[in-house]
Design a protein around this nucleic acid. Structure first.
Length: 666
DNA sequence: ATACATACC
DNA sequence: CACTGGTATGTAT
């Protein structure tokens, strides 16, 4: 949603008479050099007012992306100040400052361009009226498409991870605690009162809340809890759209038709059911579209529900005073930009519609929709074939050692290969992503003529991109590196069905289960429910992976590849096995295992019933568990030891890569 | 096609 | 001291 991105001030259509049939005067002569010939310079000689504004903005930025969302702390200004104080001086902080200044510059240029256009299109002029008419037409068109017939829910489990932890350890009740390590994934309401937020560095949270207890996350129990809750939701809409482990959209229109009852009653019943079955509370938004439902679920949080009546006037009233920031898609940057244009609430969008049109080059349909409260009315599970990219990245202690970087890159490549293998995709465009030690991100990409998926190829391409970059720039001190693959091709699509079937067939045999059932799962034409099961598993995996960042995920690969578990993993799950085989042998294609192991989890050694998917899900959960709670794993034969600084903390059992993992639990 | 920024959880 | 990871998407060039 980057409508606001400033473009070269000189490339604006209204500057160019031939692009603007309505331009009153051709006076603007071709491109002059001056960048700020219009409007205030904005980046020279700051007066104290500017300083204050910059400081306020920066403090707000440092408070983090979620600070404006919810939580109502006592004194947000005070909190922002503390965050600012404990953060300032760090490289992270300096980078934030830089980005904030960039935003300010963009805003200044944007305002300047708007002002210039206002000279050409003064209020009340024919051009102005013509724009007003266009917006009116747009609004009419949108209004005609408004659909109030669906009853859509957005469900949001209250402080999900924290709630699960609370259920596991009731002594946390009433205390300030957060879940995560290095960065909080969630915070208890008690901790939120002090300003602790998800996404916040734990050391910052501790500065705000000295008694904060930090609990490390345990994805397995979150996945389990999520499945239980989603199972309840599915009774109300089997076609629900899971947005994450703790959020979902449901269309309960049919349910209401079939079961009767008022909407509020049914939602109350749903929430009661979740509470009694899982001890978790959910907040629910009820509305005729997903956007309104999402905004509404925040309204009576925690443990509440809020309904926007399916009535045009009720909706417009609801939107009128709503801060723009609440609109999904408007983050802290766009919030600032809109604010600079005099728009803080959705109601004000309409007041400033012409100015917005001028400033945003006519691309304001999305804002008008927000103003009118019009949104998506179709709820359906996401489809795997809609996936656009697969990637891995990893943060470590900054290093400029080329070999070290290459090794880390290889790890990422291997993990991407695993993911591609598991997901059954190959891709064409390979991107190296990296973050310098000053937090500046960059990426370099190359697209191949062939479909790539193997770690070796991924590594070959990205490493050459990295080397190229080092050659160009000299030493490159990085704190993050990763690999991403785009332009994916779905191997499960008809063409590749054959190979897929063979693989699953083998797995099923090794599970000692009937084959007919499996075939049903492989058929391209799945029932909605089957699609959902698949999606559920993939979603769980995705979420799990997105949160495993602090444990040293890389270590696991090495360890597993060298102890007994590996062998069993291979026997139990060809998918995982194939992926692992390349990480320790670098061989392009280890043969599929031929032996038939018992259907037993290689990690917890428990027997497993169920489909291949369930088996995989279990193994993944176990892998994750063992990762968060490191078993007494022998760590033989460490990978290349280039870490000069690995001696730093001998306290814990540390793997050779540990020195690259800065955020261990504290 | 590539690079980068923004957003979401 | 200390600030994530995975994916989607929009814009610019």
């Amino acid at each position: 949603m980057n409508f606001f991105r400033d473009r070269d001030a000189n490339s604006d259509v209204f500057d160019d008479p031939k692009n603007d049939p309505t331009a009153a005067s051709p006076s603007t002569s071709p491109r002059k050099k001056q960048k700020f010939d219009i409007g205030p310079p904005g980046n020279s000689t700051l007066d104290t007012a500017d300083d204050d504004a910059a400081l306020a903005s920066l403090r707000k930025r440092m408070a983090g992306p979620s600070s404006a969302k919810a939580g109502l702390a006592k004194d947000q200004d005070e909190i922002n100040k503390i965050i600012y104080e404990v953060s300032k001086g760090s490289k992270f902080f300096e980078n934030e400052r830089k980005k904030d200044a960039q935003t300010t510059e963009r805003i200044n240029a944007l305002l300047a361009r708007r002002d210039q256009k206002l000279l050409q299109v003064p209020p009340g002029s024919n051009e102005w009226l013509s724009i007003e008419r266009k917006i009116e037409d747009l609004a009419t068109r949108l209004e005609n498409s408004r659909d109030l017939s669906r009853t859509i829910l957005h469900t949001d489990i209250d402080m999900f991870y924290a709630a699960v932890e609370l259920a596991r350890d009731p002594s946390l009740k009433g205390k300030c605690f957060g879940v995560g390590s290095g960065v909080l994934v969630t915070a208890s309401y008690e901790a939120r009162k002090y300003g602790a937020r998800s996404g916040m560095a734990t050391f910052v949270a501790k500065a705000l809340c000295p008694h904060l207890i930090v609990v490390k996350n345990d994805m397995q129990s979150y996945v389990e809890a999520s499945q239980k809750v989603m199972a309840v939701f599915e009774q109300y809409d089997e076609n629900l759209a899971k947005a994450s482990l703790d959020e979902a959209y449901l269309d309960i229109t049919e349910y209401i038709e079939q079961h009767g009852g008022t909407i509020d009653q049914i939602v109350q019943q749903l929430r009661d059911q979740v509470r009694s079955e899982t001890q978790l509370t959910v907040s629910v938004g009820i509305a005729p579209n997903t956007m309104l439902a999402k905004i509404s679920s925040d309204r009576n949080k925690p443990d509440g529900q809020f309904r926007v009546q399916p009535d045009r006037k009720a909706i417009v009233d609801f939107m009128r005073d709503l801060p723009c920031r609440k609109i999904p898609g408007i983050g802290r940057v766009n919030e600032r930009i809109l604010e600079s244009l005099g728009v803080s609430t959705c109601g004000e969008i309409w007041n400033k519609r012409v100015e917005l049109w001028l400033a945003l080059d006519g691309k304001i349909e999305w804002l008008i929709k927000a103003h009118l409260g019009i949104g998506n009315t179709v709820v359906e599970p996401s489809k795997r074939e809609e996936r656009k990219s697969v990637g891995r990245e990893h943060t470590f202690n900054p290093t400029a050692d080329t070999q070290a970087l290459l090794d880390l890159l290889k790890e990422s490549a291997q993990r991407v290969e695993q993911d591609l293998e598991r997901l059954d995709f190959k891709g064409k465009t390979i991107t190296l992503v990296a973050k310098k030690d000053n937090y500046q991100r960059f990426s370099r990409a190359r697209t191949s003529t062939r479909l790539v998926h193997r770690a070796e190829e991924l590594y070959d391409i990205t490493s050459s991109l990295l080397l190229q970059e080092i050659e160009r720039e000299g030493a490159l001190s990085l704190r993050l590196i990763g690999v991403r693959v785009t332009h994916l091709v779905d191997l499960r699509g008809a063409a590749a069905g054959e190979e897929r079937l063979r693989k699953l067939f083998q797995t099923r045999q090794s599970n000692g289960e009937a084959q007919g059932e499996e075939a049903a799962q492989v058929r391209p034409r799945k029932t909605a429910h089957e699609w959902q099961q698949e999606e559920e598993r993939q979603l769980a995996l995705a979420i799990k992976q997105s949160l495993e960042g602090n444990g040293d995920p890389f270590q696991e690969v090495h360890d597993l590849s060298q102890d007994d578990a590996t062998t069993q993993v291979r026997e139990a799950s060809p998918t995982i096995a194939l992926a692992l085989s390349k990480s320790d042998e670098a061989g392009p294609s280890a043969p599929l295992p031929s032996s038939n192991a018992a259907a037993q989890c290689p990690i917890c050694i428990k027997p497993i019933q169920g489909s291949n998917d369930q088996l995989n899900a279990h193994i993944d959960a176990c892998l994750n568990q063992s990762q968060l709670d490191p078993p007494s794993r022998a760590s033989p034969q460490p990978p290349p030891s280039h870490r000069a600084d690995s001696a730093s903390a001998p306290k814990k059992k540390r793997g050779p890569l540990d020195s690259f993992v800065r955020r261990s639990n504290k």
